[in-house]
Amino acid sequence: MNQHEHVIEVTDLRRVYGGGFEAVRGITFSVDRGELFALLGTNGAGKTSTVELLEGLAPPAGGSARVLGHDPYEERSKVRPRIGVMLQEGGFPSELTVSETVRMWAGCTSGARPTGEALELVGLGRRSGVRVKQLSGGEKRRLDLALALLGRPDVLFLDEPTTGLDAEGRQETWELVRELRDGGTTVLLTTHYLAEAEELADRLAILHEGRIAASGTPAEVTASQPSRITFELPDNYFLGDLPPLAELGVTDHDTDGRTVRLRTHELQRTATRLLLWAERARVELRGLDVRSASLEEAFLRIAREAAGTSASSSGAEMATDAQGSRDGTKAGNAKAGKGTAA
């Protein structure tokens, strides 16, 4: 294959299921050698449906997918020896031991690593004699990763690789994936952990209802989103008592009781002017929270906009997920807010 060709090339890809449900509705992206590309999305956004087409498990209903210059479905035998796949859900006989599973898979994998090496790689070395059914959810994910890495693949497909892992396990997997990427492995990863995409991805695409809603580097995707300033109006003050919002660089605002939320693409300018005004007026902006756009903001906004007012069940699930992390970062934001204010 030509070095300059894209390792993964997806053009106007479509997938329609038997019942007529269109899971993937014309998406286009490419991944270069040694790049880590993340597909983000709510459950049901089409991440797995897309990855399965790239793995060659099904033919596309339209458009094309190329992996290492070949059609992954029609030219399976050319592509398979060079890719490693981790499905969203295991797929191992529960009565085999860990090492028996790896040995079976090694017999079906060109240039397979020795069993011990593969298990050490994912930290399962001491569990080799254990039956698969006795592994924890996280250990099963590691076993799956070991099998994906068994043939030293050029391209790695990881479908939600850290679901079910604890924080430490997640860090270890990230470290391993980064090492592989640095070694030249091309990685396509799906996740609904925004932090995971922010941490690992060179580039990413946010999928929503089978279409790409946003794509680029994590910085590019978040840059298109406004930053946010939240505070409580001081007693006896009204919104009209603030300097004209347009002058502050505010693009959009809303209020909730006495809480004011401002959105801006010029965070520094808006924050500076707001704080200077408060200083001059000798008022305290309680609950001040200054926050630059994050992938999470971008994601939620895109999901909200695309979903309109009707919160689909998958959207609701994602929102809960994000809610959790938002609560988790509150303390951090308060600190960040203080830092900005100081």
């Binding site: 020896p81 006989p93 009565e95 040995r103 079976m104 090694a106 017999g107 060109s110 240039g111 397979a112």
Partner: peptide
Amino acid sequence: GAPASAGTTTPAGRMAALARAELTLLSRT
């Protein structure tokens, strides 16, 4: 026919690896 390490796999080798695992499973059911 079950190449444990390097080398390209063959249909016979792949089926042997799978059959061996199935035999193990059969002996446990």
